[in-house]
Computed example of a mutant assay.
Amino acid sequence: MKQILVYSDSLSWGIIPGSRQRHPFDVRWPGRLENGLKAAGDDVRVIEDCLNGRRTVFDDPYKPGRSGLEGLAQRIEVNSPLALVILMLGNNDFQSMHPHSAWHAAQGNAALVHAIRTAPIEPGMPVPPILLVAPPQIGMPAGTMAEKFNGGDVKCTGFPKALDKVAKELNCPFFDASHIIHASAVDGVHLDAHSHETLGDALVPVVAALLGEPATP
């Protein structure tokens, strides 16, 4: 069995827009991806490590443990051997308490890639390839997200392009989710069921092509 680690935030954890409830596994995109790969004949397990509010490398001043760097190397060690790591992080870097730009969030992803590639895994285990996924861009923050993401729709401008540049520099495959899905109008941040299903289905052939492919640090 090949193991895939999804390292992400609430967009992948599956918050239902306008609530604190969670989409079921078969709806949220990591589950949809696992089921699609299995239906195509791949023996896989998708491990969800998706923390609500997780940034790339920045701290949340109100909640501890939201920097994506915190404990990442150990998560790689715990879950090894891994056939693939999927990173979809960045939108929380644009919360209203942060001054960050698209460049900052892209560089945060670069630091995460470095942490994965240098994690203290057991001798002989593979360094997994890393798929960088640009999340759909923040829409007009509304409801419970209005204050938290005020201005985020502007600060996130250009993030997919900046992340694509980092992916090329680090020799990571890249997928721009904003080409196929968008944030729900309910809160301007999270994904409805249709967007989860669309993203999971779109990633099936992408991930299938990457499984077993060696990483090039």
Results as ranks from 00 to 15, higher is better:
V133G: 13
A134D: 13
A134S: 15
P135V: 13
P135E: 14
P136G: 11
P136H: 12
I138F: 05
M140K: 13
A142Y: 02
G143V: 11
G143C: 12
A146H: 01
E147Q: 14
E147A: 15
F149G: 04
N150K: 08
G152I: 11
D153V: 02
V154A: 12
V154S: 05
K155A: 11
K155N: 04
C156E: 13
G158A: 01
F159P: 00
P160L: 09
P160D: 10
P160Y: 08
K161G: 12
L163F: 06
D164A: 15
D164L: 02
K165N: 12
V166Y: 07
A167H: 11
K168C: 08
K168D: 04
K168H: 05
E169Y: 00
E169T: 10
L170R: 09
C172P: 03
C172M: 14
P173G: 10
F174Q: 12
F174T: 08
F174G: 11
F174D: 11
F175R: 04
F175K: 04
D176Q: 07
D176S: 03
D176F: 04
A177H: 06
A177M: 06
S178K: 01
H179E: 15
H179K: 15
I181T: 15
I181D: 13
I181L: 12
H182W: 00
H182F: 00
A183P: 02
A183Y: 05
A183L: 07
S184K: 05
S184Y: 00
S184A: 10
S184Q: 02
A185Q: 05
V186E: 10
G188Y: 01
G188M: 02
V189W: 11
V189I: 15
L191A: 09
A193R: 14
A193H: 10
H194F: 07
H194C: 08
S195F: 04
H196I: 09
H196R: 14
E197C: 10
E197A: 11
L199Q: 08
G200V: 08
G200S: 07
D201S: 12
D201G: 05
D201M: 09
A202G: 06
A202L: 04
A202M: 03
L203N: 03
L203F: 10
V204H: 01
P205L: 09
V206N: 02
A208M: 01
A208V: 02
A208W: 00
L210T: 04
L210N: 04
L211S: 01
G212M: 03
